[in-house]
Design a binder for these strands. Structure first.
Ligand SMILES: Nc1ccn([C@H]2C[C@H](O)[C@@H](COP(=O)(O)OP(=O)(O)OP(=O)(O)O)O2)c(=O)n1
Ligand SMILES: [Mg+2]
Ligand SMILES: [Mg+2]
Ligand SMILES: [Mg+2]
Length: 1264
DNA sequence: ATCCTCCCCTAC
DNA sequence: TAAGGTAGGGGAGGAT
């Protein structure tokens, strides 16, 4: 508050006198006002009044408002003791008059003759309940409650009809205020008396700060703001009513206790296969990130719009857009739930600890005065504002508030929406009504911006905040418009954004240059749908989603890889400093099969070659959604992707053979198609040939090739598609071709490469231009007129580029006008179902362009001009634009589960392991998986395509990566290979963690795409037999490795436990951390890989910069030897056992458990020379969080296991010793607190259950 | 020239 | 203790 007042005051014109005029007045502005909120705020600051951001009956004496919507009027009329609502002129006139005028003449007309008038009048006789802001009188807390009662009893009758208090009453109230007893609002007072008074201590300080401020008025604005913030911070510490504050804290504390999102022990993922689920359930970022798609689905399911529709969108017409944004949304919801929070500094965060690393989601305006901001760590927030009230999340409530708000608008985020109110009336009036309604129904305030388009409306909202509204913007708000440009625009009488919008683009470009002139008139990224259109749109989407759900063609897996030498993350369980890596596959057709997605993701995961232990975050993204037409199709005129070529090596070989023989005229394209088939296929195909030729004819007809234009119109789209599908089935399948001897085993890619190099380029090189041209003509002649779908892609691909291009364009042109006539009727799902090549051709013909940039598609036919006009000028690439806006689906966690060994996770890992065992390449191996896929041509293409893509990547990597960067990546790769060679349980478990995470991400993320959760799980369950077998084998191994319960495990465990903490937690702060030396001599500080930006300020989801990137460091012990990475000590999952069965496959588990642990104390051999040479630490050195967790978890289960055995043996003394050791450890070490505590508790509970009494460990209560 | 992949930045 | 996600725009640079 004070800070804002300083700023306001700093802007006040010289010559205006400061007064104490509104000393006891506290206003709250509602809706549009003139003067504006900002100006009123300024005036209040100048005359010692308060300007309240929020309306609170306790703190606001007057509501300032120019007009009120009906809803608000009714609401006010219902209030028992309404706050007076006056027009802003009251303020202005009072200042002019030099005294606080009676409000009667300024009461809002709507309320004057209303039934509520009686009550209003009663109020004007002084409202005892209406208190000045307690903050002013803060520090003298406790008395407020009683003071209220006193005043209610005493002061009420004292007012005169004009709202003035008699002098005596004034001084009484003022005196009370001086003593820390809040007085009732007084509408007039003697300025001189006020000036003679000694202000209360904190107010004195405020004045002092203000005078300092005044002296600094010459300084730049930024400085002033900063100073203002600082001073605000200083004096407002003491400013809250202690009793209320305590109550607020109590309630907040209760809310936190009741919040069950993070309650209970962090269920280790062995028992909790739903890690990703529970993680997301408690994640605010997941909540706001997925909000939009949720609400859109909701809106799609509730058809029909309520309320009036805006005027239809017409080309020349300027729209009127309102942007609404809730004020500090999450915090406002909390305040609405518990009004006691109002006026107190409030933040929303999981953690309330002043040393916590949780992030503040948002804060109310009171807290913002202290500098508490979204994304800040709670510890920092507490430092800025020690008395900060912290409340947990109320996601359900946010959702219900949001839903009320988004009934008939276009939602933008969980607290924002756009409305198109073009032609519906006075924008500001409407905005005010809407805001009032929002406040009435939700108890939260919203701000509104009005503008001619989405962007400007949104920018206006910012100026309107908090709880205000604004129309029009100053040009200087526009990016790129500063002082100079602003002046030049002003010369042409362009002051507001509306003026800019009104001028022609040409004019602006003339004045400001082409670049900037075009820039200023920013259009929204996509044409906004009117509300009416919105409904249509929603219905269509609903239909489509109902049928198929979203499907995507490109899958991207993103990994965060722990950076070598990275220090322990600042954030608890955070990912720390990482390199981000991603790999993607593009499938031949869109998919929504979770099994398929998971399988590809697993392959991507392996392709990235990040040792599982170093994974710190994982996410999958599905793009090129079939619902997003712009990204699911291909640009007309674009060449067929060469990577499709290997899919049908047979045809290519035929072509090459044909070419080699140099007898082009003797081999027809159709022969080329069949060229490499085996005899059976040949025969089979012979039977089809005639039919095929007929169909070719039919198709040509359908495509319009042989028909006069009028008849073309009559060819139905369905017919075309159907016939082409039939045709497609008659085309020899690449699958069959590829199966022919000789072509399957070899790498088709390299084979093709070799062949083409020996044939085509040589031809080109050997022959002069003339011969080349002749060949070209020959080829063209030969292939002209052949439908592209009849031609194998590899054949096309092998053609010289110019020939190929010409053929494609010719084909496209041939079909163009017919298809474009019917663009709108294209059913994407039908198109999607077609074989790839066929689909491509159709897409070309239809001119379905990808238009990723705003470029218009370079359609070969050039006939799209009339079309564009016909469809309402939807803009570039406008076909079916309305289908969907969504471009991608994400699912990411940066805190992978420590032990996410779910059935499906195991299955994925096991499938990989099975493949590894069989020494087969990933794509070929899994016959049962392959068998389950539909036997489509597409599948062949998919396989080839991926192989091809993958090789391409490797090639590129080879060529482009250089020097150290390359070395580093190679070292990672090597380490990956090594990890992969290990057949130990540990490695398997790690792989399972990764697999479990993949599966979690798939099922969660795909839910948003319309997939049912159950379906996803079912899909994942259906993994092949080999997987099941592996799982069983793994279980046997686990069972074997389990400690023998009958052993004297307790002693061994206790010993382990004594040793572990010393190694894990050498520095005794409860957080294991390796020693660091930096920088490493063998790696340049600047040699980070390209994508290696970790947590730069403001980047990555969270906005606080908690992890500071440091140059790679090296782990070095005191004696100069490498320090054992802390996590290694806890690494073996079953380290606690002392009776491990020897297992030939699992050398790491053969050792005695205690020895295994002790072994960790020594240097581990075989370090991995990432970044710093062979003698330095492995990239995985340092603190492997998953491994520590893994170890801890394993210890926990071993303990429980052992305890159960001891109990069964009635060996209570052993049990007591065990639990004692565990409890001590748990008390001493943060990392083991929960797991250890839970183990002890569980054992105690069992004892109680069996014996009916509690096992005392030390004869003391050790619970704390 | 244009596409594609990988990556970064940004708002909420 | 604590849950650092999602989706859009856009750039660099290799492949075609
Ligand atoms: N880094 C962030 C930003 C936002 N949010 C959540 C909390 C906010 O309440 C909500 C809406 O974001 P806004 O940007 O609209 O911020 P507020 O509504 O909180 O404040 P304002 O009044 O400035 O709109 O999203 C969050 O959790 N973390
Ligand atoms: Mg908001
Ligand atoms: Mg938080
Ligand atoms: Mg918002």
């Amino acid at each position: 508050m004070a800070a804002e007042q300083f700023q306001a005051q700093a802007a006040v014109l010289p010559g205006q006198q400061r007064t104490q005029l509104f000393k006891d007045v506290s206003i709250h502005c509602n809706g549009f006002t003139n003067p504006s909120h900002a100006e009123l705020k300024q005036l209040m600051a100048l005359h010692s009044g308060r300007f309240e951001v929020y309306y609170s009956r306790n703190t606001v004496t007057h509501v300032i408002c120019s007009n009120l919507p009906d809803a608000k009027v009714k609401q006010l009329q219902k209030e028992r003791s309404p706050t007076p609502v006056v027009r802003p002129e009251w303020i202005v006139d009072s200042i002019k008059a030099g005294r606080v005028l009676p409000i009667e003449d300024y009461v809002l007309w709507q309320l004057r003759d209303a039934p509520g008038q009686q009550k209003l009048k009663a109020f004007m006789q002084v409202q005892p309940a209406e208190l000045p802001p307690s903050a002013i009188y803060g520090g003298h807390a406790g008395a407020v409650g009683s003071a209220v009662e006193q005043l209610q009893a005493v002061a009420a009758p004292a007012a005169t009809p004009d709202g003035l208090l008699p002098a005596g009453a004034t001084s009484t109230a003022a005196g009370a205020a001086l003593d820390g007893h809040p007085g009732s609002p007084t509408f007039s007072f003697d300025v001189r008396t006020q000036q003679q008074r000694i202000p209360p201590p904190d107010f004195q300080q405020e004045l002092f700060q203000q005078s300092l401020q005044q002296q600094q008025q010459q300084q730049p604005a930024a400085e002033l703001t900063f100073e203002g913030d600082k001073s605000g911070l200083r004096y407002s510490h003491a400013g809250y009513d202690a009793e209320e504050m305590q109550r607020a804290q109590q309630i907040a504390s209760k809310m936190r206790a009741e919040c069950d999102m993070l309650k209970g022990p962090p269920r280790s993922s062995k028992d909790d296969p739903k890690f990703v689920d529970s993680y997301f359930r408690a994640s605010r970022l997941h909540y706001i990130g997925t909000y939009k798609s949720r609400i859109e689905a909701l809106m799609a399911s509730s058809a029909g719009s309520e309320g009036p529709s805006p005027a239809p969108h017409a080309p020349g017409r300027q729209r009127t857009i309102v942007h609404l944004d809730m004020d500090c949304f999450f915090a406002a919801v909390a305040e609405a739930e518990n009004p006691v929070f109002k006026g107190k500094p409030l933040a929303v965060c999981h953690s309330a600890s002043s040393r916590g690393t949780g992030e503040v989601s948002t804060s109310n305006y009171e807290a913002r005065k202290y500098g508490v901001r979204s994304g800040m760590m709670i510890s920092q927030a507490k430092e800025l504002c020690p008395q900060l009230v912290v409340v947990p999340y109320l996601f359900e409530q946010y959702a219900s508030v949001s839903e009320k708000r988004t009934a008939c608008v276009q939602p933008l985020s969980c607290d924002e929406a756009y409305l198109d109110i073009t032609g519906l009336g006075d924008p500001l009036q409407l905005a005010a009504e809407i805001r009032a309604e929002i406040e009435a129904t939700t108890g939260c305030t919203a701000s509104a911006g009005v503008g001619p388009n989405l962007l400007l409306a949104r920018i206006a909202t910012e100026s309107a905040k908090p709880n205000g509204q604004m129309m029009g913007l100053d040009v200087s708000k526009l990016p790129g418009v500063g002082w100079a440009t602003g002046k030049r625009l002003a010369e042409h009488d362009i002051h507001s954004v509306a003026d800019v919008q009104a001028r022609s683009k040409q004019f602006l470009q003339m004045q400001l240059g082409a670049q900037q002139g075009a820039m200023l008139q920013v259009e929204p990224p996509r044409a906004r749908k009117s509300v009416g259109a919105e409904v249509n749109w929603a219905v269509e989407v609903q239909d489509r989603l109902g049928q198929a759900g979203a499907k995507g063609r490109t899958l991207t897996l993103k990994l965060m890889r722990r950076k070598p030498g990275a220090p322990e993350p600042v954030k608890h369980m955070g990912h720390g400093i990482c390199d981000n890596l991603s790999r993607s596959v593009t499938l031949a057709s869109a998919t929504d099969s979770s099994k398929e997605i998971a399988s590809h993701c697993w392959q991507l995961l392996c392709a990235l070659k990040v040792p599982f232990a170093d994974i710190r975050g994982m996410g999958i993204t599905v793009t090129r959604l079939n619902t997003d037409i712009a990204s699911s199709s291909v640009r007309p005129g674009a060449a067929l992707p060469a990577r499709l070529a290997p899919a049908a090596a047979g045809q290519r070989d035929a072509f090459v053979a044909f070419f080699k023989k140099d007898q082009p005229s003797q081999v027809s394209p159709q022969q080329a198609q069949q060229g490499h088939m085996g005899e059976e296929e040949q025969q089979h195909h012979q039977q089809q040939r005639e039919q095929q030729q007929q169909q070719q004819h039919k198709q040509d007809q359908a495509l319009g090739g042989n028909l006069p234009p009028r008849q073309q119109q009559d060819v139905g789209q369905q017919q075309v598609v159907q016939q082409q599908m039939e045709l497609a089935h008659s085309i020899p399948r690449p699958q069959a071709l590829a199966a022919s001897p000789g072509s399957a085993k070899k790498s088709p890619d390299s084979a093709r490469q070799a062949r083409l190099e020996t044939v085509l380029p040589r031809q080109a090189a050997a022959s002069p231009a003339a011969e080349d041209a002749e060949r070209r003509q020959q080829l063209l002649h030969e292939w002209q007129g052949v439908s592209l779908s009849q031609m194998d892609a590899s054949v096309l691909d092998a053609l010289p580029w110019s020939v190929r291009k010409e053929l494609i364009e010719a084909a496209a042109q041939r079909n163009a006008h017919h298809f474009q006539e019917r663009q709108k009727q294209v059913d994407r799902s039908v198109l999607d179902a077609l074989p790839l090549l066929l689909r491509r051709e159709l897409e070309h013909a239809y001119g379905i362009g990808r238009a990723r940039r705003r470029l218009p598609p370079a359609g070969p036919a050039g006939r799209r001009g009339d079309k564009a006009g016909h469809h309402g000028g939807a803009g570039s690439g406008g076909l079916l634009r309305h289908v969907s806006k969504r471009q991608r689906i994400d699912s990411f966690v940066s805190n992978p589960p420590p032990l996410g060994i779910t059935g499906s996770g195991r299955a994925l890992a096991a499938a990989a392991a099975a493949r590894r065992e069989q020494q087969m390449s990933l794509s070929q191996v899994d016959p049962s998986v392959l068998a389950e896929l539909p036997p489509e041509v597409r599948h062949e293409v998919v396989q080839q395509l991926q192989q091809d893509d993958s090789k391409q990547h490797t090639r590129r990597q080879h060529r482009s990566r250089l020097g150290q960067q390359h070395d580093e990546e190679r070292a990672w790769q090597q380490r990956w290979e090594e990890e992969r060679q290990q057949q130990g349980l540990e490695e398997a478990e790690l792989a399972a963690v990764a697999g479990g995470t993949v599966c979690g991400l798939v099922s969660r993320g795909m839910n948003g795409a319309g997939l049912e959760r159950q379906q996803v799980d079912a899909d994942l369950e259906q993994l092949p037999d080999a997987v099941q077998q592996f799982l069983q084998a793994a279980d046997v191994v686990v069972a074997e490795a389990r400690p023998n319960p009958a052993s004297s495990l307790a002693a061994a465990l206790a010993e382990c436990l004594q040793q572990l903490p010393a190694q894990l937690d050498g520095d005794g702060d409860g957080v294991p951390a390796p020693r660091l030396r930096s920088p490493s001599p063998s790696q340049e500080p600047g040699s980070r890989s390209r994508g290696s930006r970790d947590a730069p300020p403001g980047s990555s989801g969270g906005s606080s910069s908690m992890d500071v990137d440091v140059p790679p460091t090296q782990l070095v012990g005191v004696d100069g030897h490498e320090v054992v990475p802390a996590e290694e000590a806890a690494a073996p999952p079953l380290a606690g056992s002392d009776r491990l069965q020897p297992s030939p496959q699992l050398p790491s588990l053969q050792q005695d458990g205690v020895q295994a642990v002790q072994r960790q104390a020594k240097c581990r051999e075989g370090s991995h020379p990432i970044g710093s040479g062979a003698s330095s630490s492995p990239p995985g050195s340092g603190f492997h969080r998953p491994r520590v967790q893994q170890g801890v978890q394993a210890l926990g289960s071993s303990i429980q296991h052992a305890a159960a055995a001891l109990l069964a043996n009635r060996d209570l003394e052993q049990l007591r010793l065990l639990l004692l050791a565990v409890r001590r450890l748990a008390q001493r070490h943060v990392w083991f607190a929960t797991t250890g505590g839970a183990a002890v508790d569980a054992a105690q509970a069992r004892v109680q259950e069996v014996y009916g009494w509690r096992l005392r460990l030390e004869g003391l209560d050790l619970s704390r």
